[in-house]
């Protein structure tokens, strides 16, 4: 690849070309997609959430009965709590990813590429396949994990069928699956930290731990923030792992159901689209609130160099 550079490295500046009509046209294309595939469905969802009817006869706006039914029901608070617990546990994957990223970034590490491939493999594996393998690992009667735990004298259980452990067992898989993506983002963040800063710290006599705490962690914090936000948004939408790993007659399901699982039950099992629409909007609002809180908190710990 050869790039033409202007002397002195400064890019050629163009004059603004008049009325910006081209910009408007080019921006309209993705905007159209946004309107057709996001804003319009969102509007329809909101209308659906205050309607009742039948898919064949159509839906009519009838008021907020659906909202009352969902908000006063006993299923939503439980699902919200489960979802937040799940998101919080999966968030523990961020420091894990950070440590792994720093270890992989070490100078002179052999087989770095191999490690990166290995850590990224879960990301490119089908979630359904991943869930099936983990189901076997977690199996209460014949599972690998129980074999290991029993051998070293730890307590065993049916990990994904025991209401006390199921959500956490699924969260471990969530962390494991998300690690690869988090690593990619954090590795890019590490690359962006200038060697000169690290070297200066070394000359000042800072050891590896001190360098991590005072140099790497603060300079990496924008990437860590991004990873955290994406991780939480993904967790709030968790459905597939629960669907494949627990199944509909699992005794732990009632205590592990997430909001999106609840949405699935209403909209697709019971075919009550309006109730599903209410839950979908609740999910959106919860996601907005949690993300807003994260943005508020980041002022305290994210350092933009």
């Amino acid at each position: 690849m050869s790039a033409i550079r202007t002397p002195g490295g400064s890019p050629v500046r163009r004059r603004p070309s008049g009325d910006g009509r081209w910009a408007a046209i080019l921006l309209a294309v993705p905007l159209l997609g946004l309107v057709v595939f996001y804003l319009w469905p969102l509007l329809r969802t909101i209308i659906l959430s205050v309607s009742t009817g039948n898919p064949f006869l159509g839906y009519e706006i009838t008021g907020f009965d659906n909202w009352v039914q969902v908000l006063t029901g006993d299923e939503l608070p439980r699902a919200l709590l489960n979802t937040l617990v799940y998101a919080a546990v999966v968030l523990l994957g961020v420091p894990l990813a950070m440590i792994t990223a720093v270890l992989l970034h070490q100078r002179g590490l052999r087989f770095r590429g191999l490690y990166r491939v290995l850590y990224f493999l879960p990301v490119v594996t089908m979630p359904a396949a991943v869930a099936m393998v983990w189901r076997y690992i977690y199996n209460g009667d014949f599972g690998l994990l129980n074999e290991v735990f029993a051998a070293v004298g730890l307590p065993t259980t049916a990990w994904v069928a025991d209401p006390r452990t199921a959500l956490f067992a699924v969260a471990v898989v969530g962390i494991w699956m998300g690690l690869g993506t988090n690593l990619i983002i954090l590795a890019a963040g590490l690359e962006a930290i200038p060697d000169s800063v690290t070297e200066a710290a070394m000359l000042d006599g800072a050891g590896p731990v001190r360098r991590f705490a005072s140099i790497t962690a603060p300079l990496l914090s924008p990437s860590v923030f991004l990873v955290s936000v994406l991780s939480v948004i993904g967790s709030l939408q968790m459905f597939d792992l629960l669907f494949v790993m627990l199944g509909r007659t699992n005794p732990a399901l009632a205590d592990s159901k997430t909001i999106v699982y609840l949405f699935y039950e209403e909209a697709f099992v019971r075919s009550d689209r309006p109730l599903g629409a209410v839950i979908a909007i609740v999910t959106l609002v919860v996601t907005l609130i949690v993300t807003a809180i994260q943005f508020r908190l980041q002022r305290r710990w994210v350092h933009y160099a």
Partner: peptide, 22 residues
């Protein structure tokens, strides 16, 4: 948590279904 391709945002999923019923 990058299995976004599968976990369609809830709003989108219901909305699309509603959109399909014309």
């Amino acid at each position: 948590m990058k299995w976004k391709a599968l976990t369609l945002s809830g709003a989108l999923a219901v909305g699309l279904l509603a959109g399909c019923t014309s």
